[in-house]
Amino acid sequence: MQPVIELDDLTVHFGEREILKCLRIALSGRIIGLLGPNGAGKSTLIHTLLGFCPASSGTARILGHDIRAEADKVRTLVGYMPENDSLIADMTAVSFVRMMGELSGLAKEAALERAHEVLFYVGLGEARYRPLGTYSLGMRQLAKLAQAIVHGPRLLILDEPTNGLDPAARTRMIKLIHDMKDSGEMHILLCSHLLRDVEETCEDVLILKQGSIVHHSNLESERRTNKRFVEIQTHGDDSGFAETLVAIGCQCSAVVGGRLKAVVPEEFDLREIYRVAAGRDLQLRRLNYRRDTLEDIFMKAMEV
C-alpha cells in the first residue's frame, strides 16, 4: 500500500531555530491524527506539506509526489481546512466555494455545481446564498470544510476542525469526517488538540514534541492489544488465585492486596476467570479491561 505521507529526513528552520528535526516516517492510515503540545511543530509540518514553508533539508512525499518537485500536483491532490478564520466575509458561501473550486482547476460550470453539492453535503444548503460574514462559528467551520473538499481532494488536511463548536456541531463534524473516510478514496490528516476527536476518528496517530516524532502508532492495534490486559480486584483469601490463572494460560503481575493485572491469551474466554474465582469461593469486586486511552499514550509520549 502506497504511503499517504512520507517524511524523509524532513528538517525545517525558521531563521536559526530548528522547528522540525529530521522527521522520517511513512503514514498510511485513512485518517491520521497529528498531535502535540503547542509549539511542537504540527502547523509547521502542515505548512511544509502544503509548500508554505521551504524544507531546510530532506523532503516529503504526498501520495508519492514530492512536495518540492511536484508542488502544483501535490496542491491539486490536497484540500486544506485551516484553523484560523479565512473566509471572505462579503462573499456568499456558494460564490466563495465556487471560486476556490475554480482556482483548484474546476471549470466554471463544474465548480458551481460542486459548490452547491458540497454546501448541501456539509449542511449549509439553505444558507448558501448568505454572505459568509453573517455565519455563526459553527457554520464558518462547515464552510471552510466545504471549500476544502470542493475539488475532490485525495488528502484532506483538517487543522482543528472542531475548534469552538458546540457539542451538536462537533458531533456533526465528526460524522462528516467518518462519512468522507468511508465514501471515497479520501485520506484525512487531522490535527487537533482535542484527544477525544482524534480517538474517535483516527486510525493512525503521530505525536510530535519539540519538532521530533515521539510516538507513532495504529490506534486500532493499540485497542486490540489493550483488550488482552485485564485488571482484577478480589475480596477474600486470594492465595493461589494468581497461580491458578497462570495455569490456565494467563500471565499475572502486580499482585498487591487483592488487586492483580493479568495478560490473557488471545481467544481467551473471560468467564474462565469467574469460574476459577467461584471454585475458590473468591469474590470478584472488579474485572475490567485496562483502558489505555489516547490521553495515556499522549502523556507517556510527553514524558519521553
Binding site: D72, R75, Y80, P82, D85, S86, A89
Partner: peptide, 17 residues
C-alpha cells in the same frame, strides 16, 4: 483588502496557484 483582512491567503496558496 478583503483577502488580507479575512486571512484568506492560505486558502489561495493551498491550491495550485
Amino acid at each position: 483588502n478583503p483577502d488580507f483582512a479575512n486571512g484568506a491567503m492560505p486558502l489561495y496558496f493551498s491550491r495550485p496557484f
